[in-house]
Design a protein around this nucleic acid. Sequence first.
DNA 1: TCAGAAATTTGACCCATATCATGTGGATCT
DNA 2: AGATCCACATGATATGGGTCAAATTTCTGA
Lengths: 256, 256
Amino acid sequence: MTDIMIVAIMRHNRLREMSMDSVCPHNNTFHCGDCRMNALCLPLALQTKEVERLDEIIQRGKPLQKDHHIYHAGEEFNSVFAVRSGSIKSYTISNNGQEQVTGFHLPGEIFGMDGIGQNRYTNSAVAMETSAVCEIPFNRLQDLSIAIPTLQRHFFQLMSLEITGDQQLLSLLSKNTAEERVATLLMSISNRNLRRKLSATRFRLPMSRADIGNYLGLTVETVSRVFSRFQKQTLLKVDKKEVELLNLDKLRELAN
Amino acid sequence: MTDIMIVAIMRHNRLREMSMDSVCPHNNTFHCGDCRMNALCLPLALQTKEVERLDEIIQRGKPLQKDHHIYHAGEEFNSVFAVRSGSIKSYTISNNGQEQVTGFHLPGEIFGMDGIGQNRYTNSAVAMETSAVCEIPFNRLQDLSIAIPTLQRHFFQLMSLEITGDQQLLSLLSKNTAEERVATLLMSISNRNLRRKLSATRFRLPMSRADIGNYLGLTVETVSRVFSRFQKQTLLKVDKKEVELLNLDKLRELAN
DNA sequence: TCAGAAATTTGACCCATATCATGTGGATCT
DNA sequence: AGATCCACATGATATGGGTCAAATTTCTGA
C-alpha cells in the first residue's frame, strides 16, 4: 500500500476545492458528499444517489487520540475503515513476538481489509496522531455491492491494489538498500500528499523513526543515519518530524 | 500467500478420495464437480447448483509446458486463474530491471488477482513444470458474484488472504534469518501438500534454488548453504529437487 | 518549570549474508 | 560420445547494516 495506492487515486483526481474548514469533522450529520476526501475515498466511482446509500451505512467516529487503537489483531472483523483525518498505523505481532509495521494510512485511504479472510483482524490499527475515521460495516458493504456493481468492482480493485502495494514493498525489502528504501517511503508520502492537494515537498512525517525502520526492515539507527546522509547531500532538510524535500529528482531516482 | 493460504484451505477440508487418474485433465468436458481440487478451489463454499453456474464460465486450458507464460506483466487483465495441476510462479520486474518472485501457486490455488486493481497484470505468471490451469473471466465472475453472494464473499476472502499472506512474507523478509526463511517456505509447502492429501514430509520442490532465493530475499549461494546445513543437522535430506523433511518439529520451530 | 523518560543521533565494532571464484554433476545438443 | 550449458555446491573475502554504547534533544507529567 505505498506507491501503488497512488495510481488508484490519480485515476479519479477530481478533488474538491472545499477546504477542511468548511466541514465539521466532529459532527455526526457530516456526509460523504461533503467530505473533502470524497473523490479519493470509497465514493470515488459512485453517482450522487449511490453515495447517499453508502452514506447511510457509514458510521463516523469521534476524534481518536494518539495511540488509541481502532482494533487489535485477533478481534472479530466487522468493518473496514476510511481515514478522514490524521494518520493510522497497521501492524502485526509475529509469532516470535516482534512488531511488524504493515502500513501507514493517510486521509482518504481504506484499511482493515486484512480481516476479511479469516473474519478476524490480523493487524492492529492505531492512531499515530489525533485522527478521525469512518467505519464501514462490511456485511452492509457487501450487500450494497450487490446492488451497486460499480462499488463491488471498486472494492475488488482496492483490495487488489493493496496486494500489488504489498508486493512492491516485498521487492523493496528484498532487493534495495537502506537509502533506496527510505527514499521510496518519502516519495510515496510525497505523492500521496500531492493527490490530496498538499505540498509534495514539505510535510510532517506522522510516524516515528522506529516505525519507519520497522516498516522498511531497518533499525532506527540506520534510518537516522540515512536521514543524516540525505541531509548532508542536501537531498532534504529534516527538523524533527518536519521534512522538506530539496532534490525530488535525485530522491525519485533513488526510489526508482 | 504462503502460510496464510493454508488457513483458508483448512477451513474447508473436505477432500474427495477421487484420485488424479480418475479424471482426464486434457478433456474439455471436465467439470469443477469432478475436479479433485474441487474442495479447496473456488467452488469450495458453493452448492452443487451454484458450482454448475461457475462451471459454465470457467475455461479449461490445454496442458502448459514448463516455462510457458500464462500472462505477462502489463498485459490487459481479463481473468484470474486456478491451478489444476503442476505449479506456477508469479514474478514482477522491478523498475531497476530485477526479477522479484512474488509467489508460487500449487493446485487448487488462485492467482492473477493482482491484475484487478489496474486492469492489467502487474505480475507475470509462468509454469514451473508441465501444468494445467483453469481460466476464470473476471467480468463474468463479478456478475456471478452478484447472483451468488457466497461467491462474492469467498472471493473477497481469497483476496484478503493474499494480502495477509504477503504481509507475513514482509515480516519474514524484514525480521528473519536465512535459515528461518527457508524453513518457513518448506513448512508452507509441506502444509499445502498435506491439505491436498500429499505427503507432508516427502515432496518435490517445483522451483529452482534461484527462485527460492529470489522469493525469500536471499542469494542462490545462501539457499544452497542453508540446505547443506539443514542436511548436516539431519533436519532434512535433499537430493536435487526432492526433499524429505526429517525433523518437522525443529523445522516448524525455525519457521515459527 | 523542572525531572525523568523517551526519541533521536552518532560512533565503534561485528557479523550474517552478499560477492566473487571455482568446482562438479547432470542435461541437452551435435 | 564429446562439447556446451546450466543448476547447484562450496570456499574465500568483503561489506552494509546490525548491535552495543553513549550523548543529546525532545516530550511529558507533576
